[in-house]
Amino acid sequence: MELTYIKAINSALHEEMQRDENVFVMGEDVGELGGAFKATEGLLEAFGEERVIDTPISEALIIGAGIGAAVLGMRPVLEMQFADFISCAFDQIVNSAATLRYRHGGRAQCPIVVRAPSGAGIHGALFHSQNPEAWFTRVPGLKVVAPATAYDAKGLLKSAIRDNNPVIYFEHKRLYRSVKENLPEGDFTVPIGVAELRKEGADLSVITYGGTLAPALDAAKIVEKEDRLSVEVLDLRTLLPLDREAILATARKTGKVLIVHEDRLTGGIGGEVAAIICEHAFEYLDAPVRRLAALDTHTAFSPPLEEVILPNTNKIVDAIRNLAAY
């Protein structure tokens, strides 16, 4: 059945709530309204208000209450209406959820999922466009995923719900309705911590995830046709823990790596990926590891400015050509 990225999320929620009555969703306008982006549409009708809980605008409370419920065996899926608002709940995620098991000497667990609609390119400006994944990718105890396809959106959300750790699930808003694909009927999951090779190639590797996977694949096609370059594209899918083997395998194979993400350059996960490659595959490299990311500035509202700030297909094509020529 052909599903959009957002419908894939919705269908994962339906199926997991059906499968396990401990799963419930909670967030701002997730019930009657079905969520700001309609990710939770139809859940209230199907599962009732006990399991589809509309909350006040209280992000710290949404996460904190989720933690309290999770430690007693519930499996809350907590929606931050926009990933940008997650900053209001930062303490609860980083201090309370991530450390809970450790604080209890490994004898308790905190299986929450935080759904965080992230990403730019929809003219949301400063507080509705951020990609704050790197705030969390350095926090032990958390897992961080960022699906780029409808299949992964569904499979990773199911895995996140079934995981016994707190998982931050970054869903890219621009992909909600622009990405669609035929999904298999029935239950399937996508493992957390495993990257996916989207395209094989020999000359150069592009490592990316989330909102920049599609432009990276487009760019690979363009340079293949126009420059006869064979480009490999690796989709990280999980940002914590990183799939180090897959990263090193592609770096060793092609010897040239371009890392692309929509998060800002400085402090983005790309720096960590580059460091892994430089530390463990240096002798295979034929060129410095390059990064293409959002500029180190705020996401401007002005559409032409936003265009300059974000990576896109043309910029990836240029970066590939530069790196290939090194």
């Binding site: 209450a65 309290g68 419920a69 519930m74 303490d91 609860q92 201090n95 309370s96 809970l100 000497g105």
Partner: peptide, 30 residues
């Protein structure tokens, strides 16, 4: 922290325990 005793943690962030207590209450109610 000792879940067996139902002592659900000392929170070293001022105010940090209140949302969690609320969530424990939510779970009990559910």
């Amino acid at each position: 922290f000792d879940q067996d005793l139902r002592f659900m943690g000392g929170y070293a962030i001022v105010g940090g325990g209140l949302p969690i207590a609320t969530g424990l209450g939510l779970s009990v109610q559910y």
